[in-house]
């Protein structure tokens, strides 16, 4: 008596319900500063110039000035004694700086599978997972299992896809975005679910290398925001897009009309383009 009722109820519930999926948006934050835009560069230069102009002379500058004066006095006659002057010191230091810069130079990583690429902007982990019949680029995801929270599902998705050697911090218990889609008829019948609701959880990469689980993941990449939007299925990309913080890019060229000195502007523009 009880059993058929229960079964029926269960069946009905499942047919009308959604399959819950937890997905992890694992992000490595920017490590280095972004390069200045033309306006930022010019503004920065102006600030440092004004600061220099308003500053007081340092001990080193006083020393250089005193040496210059005494040299001018001495110029008439008398043998010169070789001393290390402020100027020589400055030249030495510059040379040393160049040497260190050359020694500790940094070559950017270009491999898309490396988390060390594009250090001046955040990169997000994308994996090529088999979903249905085709394999798609998406965030690591896994179906929700009874007894775990969705956050745990998302964390499990990461460890299933890329191993648990990765250190990261999940940012809170709440999902940052959701995306739902209907399954095709066949899948609906075979799984008993109407469709899938994917909940995205944001996480912050800390350190460690990832080891792809080849059973689940065909490939992986650390994608910049633009690449993420390009590679995700279009509808999913639209759903997660607002959950990303992308610094706004303001087009400043219309604002430049307020500047009356066009020649100076042009000169600086050329200087910026030449580096």
């Amino acid at each position: 008596m009880l059993a058929p009722k229960k079964l029926m109820g269960f069946g009905l519930r499942r047919m009308s319900s959604w399959q819950l999926i937890g997905s992890a948006v694992l992000e490595r934050k920017a490590v280095t500063v972004k390069k200045f835009s033309a306006l930022e560069k010019v503004y920065y230069d102006i600030l440092s110039q004004t600061e220099d102009e308003n500053s007081l002379l340092s001990d080193f500058e006083l020393r250089a000035r005193a040496e210059k004066k005494s040299r001018e006095k001495k110029k008439e006659g008398s043998a010169q004694v070789k001393i290390q002057l402020a100027e020589d010191l400055l030249a030495d230091w510059k040379q040393e700086a160049e040497r260190i810069k050359a020694k500790l130079s940094y070559t950017p990583v270009t491999d898309v599978r490396s988390h060390e690429r594009c250090l001046d902007q955040p990169v997000t982990l994308l994996v090529k997972q088999k979903i249905g019949n085709d394999s798609l680029w998406c965030f690591p995801e896994s179906a929700h299992k009874r007894g775990e929270t969705l956050r745990q599902t998302a964390e499990r998705a990461i460890s299933e896809a890329v191993g648990d050697k990765l250190q990261y911090v999940t940012l809170g218990n709440a999902p940052c975005a959701a995306y739902s889609y209907k399954y095709p008829k066949q899948v609906q019948e075979s799984t008993g679910f109407h469709g899938a609701k994917i909940f995205f959880f944001r996480a912050r990469y800390q350190k460690g290398d990832l080891v792809c689980n080849k059973k689940i993941v065909e490939d992986h990449m650390w994608a910049t925001f633009d690449e993420v939007m390009e590679n995700l299925p279009a509808k999913m990309a639209k759903a997660v897009r607002p959950s990303f913080f992308v610094p706004p890019v303001v087009d400043f060229t219309p604002f430049l009309d307020a500047i009356s000195d066009r020649d100076e502007l042009e000169r600086l523009d050329v200087a910026f383009k030449n580096g």
Partner: peptide, 18 residues
């Protein structure tokens, strides 16, 4: 601020969905 409010809106919508 627009971007941040969009982020919050997105999260609230996800929570409602959940």
């Amino acid at each position: 601020t627009k971007i941040i409010s969009a982020m919050l809106h997105c999260q609230n919508a996800a929570l409602e969905d959940l």
